[in-house]
Design a protein around this nucleic acid. Structure first.
Length: 522
DNA sequence: AGACTAAGCGCC
DNA sequence: AAAGGGCGCTTAGTCT
């Protein structure tokens, strides 16, 4: 059963609209009684108020996310995907632009009515049914919508973040918190060392100044990337490298960041479901997906609780093995360490197997890649051909799709121009690498979404998912639930694999550990 | 002064 | 040794 939530109105599809005095309460009651699939224009706006009231739901259909998936599949990538825009298109009305502004802004338009939303839903279900693989796409829509629920819940619950530990770490590395606009003492000392090494004032944050200063010292640099700096012999290099590393911590994840993003001992980033074209999530502020490893020790479970941290091992090559139906690769992917299982095909070298697989999935060409790819082509022809086909499609300007049907953006007008010009080959190859990777990364993202959706349903109260990063998930739960949660993770991984690929020899190991601090997970 | 891009580097 | 996919975020520096 689908039940539309439009503003303060609740309306079962085909039933009568109600305007309950207590919307959250009514949703909670209906959820307990019927477990319907809730339909909303955008979970980012509809769900947080329910969470505030302690109401959680099992399933939903997010009209905006679904519209985005459908538009892309239809080759209409970039058209506005809000429920309102979808409704306007249905009726030949002017299509409103997507509002980039945050929910709750002053000029937010009136919410779409329940009848209009039901029309959009019916239209979307019809378009899905007409697809060549409707079953897969339905799974994609369900997983994407479940992702929207998980994302809102994770933002609401937040990841444990100990400000005292964070402050101690920063103070240890940088010196005490400086007054606004100043560098911390240790950072300033390193900047001074750089200046001393050059014999004149140089701002280590300025690429221009650095290149100029090195040039004057007789060192020609193309860039100031740290790997390039490491190659040169000059007294400024050591303090500069140290400065770069610490400056990043200070400005990205320092005290100012914590003031803005950590509240009540929780870090609450805003996740953007499907924010990456491949289907990966992005974040909007907070840099949640780029937390430096050195900061993981700041993530500590509450007293009496633990963090269950789980990551999918070698997810992308396993996904490729399952998609391509490559028997040899699938057999290797039946092992816990896929690369070790492949090693004998690559002269006994695990590293070579890894380079071959990564080059195949990313389009790498350097070093030994071409030699190793030739081995891969011979040993694992179907897997090799699968990514080659995706690359060829991209080079030819075609669309590619993930396993469940997420579709790549079409080539831009700029690309079409470029590809017929003198730099055409380069442009074509760049897009080929993108589409080559898209099919693998996109399907890996689908597997991860399915995992989240299933795991969410298996977790016992009061365990909570508190972090998700592409192929890694963190659950915060009482110590006594650790074993149950760990078991739930591997069950969810198996179920995600079954949902996407049915019966396959490929295994998707998801090993979970219960730790007190994130830093102890690996 | 604000909007923009490029460089650089963190994560997967 | 330093290339190949996807991002977000900050500072410098430039443009308007």
């Amino acid at each position: 059963m689908y039940v539309v939530v439009a503003g303060e109105t609740v309306q079962p599809v085909g039933g009568a609209a109600r305007r309950p005095a207590d919307l959250a309460g009514a949703v909670g009651e209906l959820e307990a009684a019927e477990r319907p699939r809730w339909v909303w224009a955008d979970a980012r706006e509809a769900y947080p108020p329910l969470l505030e009231r302690g109401v959680r739901v099992a399933r939903c259909h997010d009209l905006a996310l679904t519209e985005g998936l459908l538009l892309a599949h239809e080759g209409r990538y970039g058209e506005p995907r809000t429920a309102r825009a979808a409704h306007a298109r249905l009726h030949g009305l002017p299509v409103p632009e997507e509002q980039p502004s945050a929910p709750g802004t002053l000029f937010a338009p009136e919410p779409l009515g329940a009848e209009a939303m039901a029309e959009v839903l019916a239209d979307q279900l019809g378009r899905i049914a007409a697809l060549p693989e409707p079953g897969r796409f339905r799974l994609l829509v369900a997983a994407e919508s479940a992702g929207a629920l998980v994302a809102a819940e994770m933002s609401y619950d937040g990841m444990p973040w100990r400000r005292d530990v964070h402050d101690a770490l920063l103070t240890d590395l940088l010196g005490p918190r400086p007054v606004h606009g100043m560098r911390p003492a240790k950072l300033q000392a390193l900047a001074d060392e750089v200046t001393a090494a050059f014999g004149h004032q140089v701002n280590p944050d300025s690429v221009q100044q650095l290149v100029k200063a090195f040039k004057a010292a007789g060192v020609a640099l193309k860039t100031t990337r740290s790997w390039e700096l490491k190659q040169i012999d000059h007294p400024a290099v050591a303090p500069l490298l140290a400065y770069k590393e610490l400056a990043r911590l200070f400005s990205f994840h320092g005290w100012v960041w914590a003031d803005q993003w950590v509240r009540g001992g929780r870090f609450r980033p805003e996740y953007v479901v499907g924010g990456v074209v491949s289907g990966r999530w992005a974040t909007n502020g907070g840099g949640a997906l780029q937390i430096p490893k050195v900061m993981r020790r700041v993530v500590v479970a509450d007293d009496g609780w633990v963090l269950v941290v789980a990551d999918a091992a070698q997810l992308e090559p396993r996904v490729l093995a399952a998609m391509a139906g490559d028997g040899g690769l699938a057999r290797a992917a039946g092992q816990i360490d896929l690369y070790s299982a492949l090693a004998q095909s690559f002269g006994g070298e695990r590293d070579n197997a890894k380079i071959a697989m990564l080059s195949a999935m990313y389009g790498g060409t350097s070093g030994d890649a071409s030699k190793l790819l030739a081995v891969m082509r011979q040993r694992f022809p179907k897997a090799y051909q699968f990514v080659e086909d995706a690359a060829k499609a991209g080079e030819d300007g075609h669309l590619v799709r993930s396993w469940l049907g997420r579709t790549s953006p079409p080539p831009s007008a700029r690309w079409k121009e470029l590809v017929s010009g003198p730099e055409g080959t380069r442009a074509a190859r760049d897009r080929g690498r993108f589409t080559r990777n898209f099919v693998v990364q996109g399907t890996a993202a689908e597997w991860a979404l399915a995992l989240l959706a299933v795991l969410r349903g298996l977790l016992p109260e009061p365990a909570r998912m508190v972090f998700f990063q592409h192929d890694e998930v963190m659950v915060h739960c009482p110590i006594g639930q650790a074993e149950e949660v760990i078991a739930a993770v591997s069950e969810a991984a198996a179920e995600a694999s079954r949902l996407l690929f049915g019966s396959t020899p490929v295994r998707f190991p998801m090993e979970a550990v219960a730790v007190d601090s994130y830093a102890d997970a690996k």
